[in-house]
């Protein structure tokens, strides 16, 4: 993809992020941080590419280390968010 297409997606996504995040209820700001933490670990994509491809053994091991770190975050982040969200209850009326 050329730079301008990527930049367009980035700028539009910033605006989407702006409006979506303002609509998040303040009561859920801690789960918001936990889940943004989990999704920002989509960086695992880069780590997987490095770990999968041949060419540089150093890059492969850096990639594998990146996969471990990002996995901690992905599993930990989604699990802890789920745990928190399960606690938000309203009495049955």
């Amino acid at each position: 993809m050329d730079f301008i297409s990527i930049l367009s997606i980035f700028v539009l996504a910033c605006f989407v992020g702006y409006y979506v995040v303002w609509s998040v209820t303040p009561a859920l700001h801690t789960p918001l941080m936990a889940v943004t933490n989990a999704i920002s670990s989509v960086i695992i994509v880069g780590a997987l590419i490095a770990a999968a491809e041949a060419g540089s053994p150093t890059a492969k091991y850096l990639g594998l280390a990146g996969v471990v770190l990002a996995s901690i975050n992905i599993f930990g982040g989604f699990a802890v968010t789920e745990r928190m969200l399960a606690m938000y209850k309203k009495k049955e009326k």
Binding site: I6, I9, F10, A13, V16, V21, L32, T36, I39, S40
Partner: peptide, 24 residues
């Protein structure tokens, strides 16, 4: 990193998380 790799998922997520933290 999304820019470097030309990866849409990373760019969208990065922008979402970046704005989220900035708004908070």
């Amino acid at each position: 990193m999304g820019f470097t790799l030309g990866n849409t998922a990373m760019i969208i997520t990065g922008a979402l998380v970046g704005s989220s933290g900035a708004i908070l």
